[in-house]
């Protein structure tokens, strides 16, 4: 008996009508199963948890994940040094990364820890935008770390082959930069207030 005839038959008898098979739900349950996940699928899933990519759909994340490079670093290994040429942007897939900055006069250089990055956090966005970027800080892996890198050639390929995803990614990068500039302005204002206060006291 076809589904329609069965529904008619059951409706005539005033019996409860069985629900249709929800393919989307079935697919979700199948993919969410502990035995169905593999390395390829885990990347978009990981990207879903990255705050900066929250506006991306599952399909867009799947496309983006095809352009990412998985790089393995050991404990204490340097990802890049302050002053190095930079061409890439990284997401922390596992492990931790410390961002350090060296400042001061030659011979009296001091190391400042700027940030401790963990899983789903990101760094190095300027490397994607500037024509010849010089890294502003050093990135060191705190433990055995896996990073997902997106480099200039990948961004160009992404913009070329999937312009919508590429443009969306560029918008997110602009937002990160806007946030960084905002934070910097706040810090500058705070320092100026401190300086003004200091001069008034004198």
């Amino acid at each position: 008996m076809s589904y329609e005839n069965e529904v008619k038959h059951l409706a005539g008898k005033q019996e409860p009508i069985p629900g249709r098979v929800d393919l989307g739900l079935m697919r979700y349950l199948w993919q969410a199963g502990p035995f169905s996940s593999n390395r390829q699928e885990s990347l978009p899933k990981f990207l879903q948890r990255v705050s900066v990519l929250k506006e991306f759909s599952s399909n867009e994340l799947r496309i983006l994940s095809q352009y990412l490079h998985r790089r393995q670093f050991s404990r204490g290994e340097i990802v890049f040094r302050q002053g190095d040429a930079g061409y890439g942007f990284y997401f922390v897939l596992s492990g931790t990364v410390t961002i350090q900055h060296l400042s001061g006069r030659e011979g009296d250089l001091k190391e400042h820890i700027l940030a401790m990055l963990e899983k789903t956090q990101y760094f190095g966005e300027m490397g994607l935008l500037e024509d010849y970027n010089r890294r502003n800080a050093t990135a060191v892996c705190g433990e055995s770390t896996t990073l997902l890198g997106l480099f200039k050639p990948d961004l160009e390929a992404l913009l070329d082959q999937h312009p919508v995803v590429g443009a969306k990614f560029m918008r997110e990068i602009s937002l990160i930069l806007a946030q960084r500039v905002g934070a910097l302005m706040q810090e500058v204002t705070h320092l100026r207030h401190q300086l003004d206060g200091g001069s008034t006291l004198k």
Binding site: S74, G76, E77, Q82, Q100, L102, E111, T138, V140, C141
Partner: peptide, 11 residues
């Protein structure tokens, strides 16, 4: 900033 000996060896 110097790398740890293990990281250096691996590199």
């Amino acid at each position: 900033m110097n790398q740890t000996p293990v990281a250096l060896r691996q590199q």
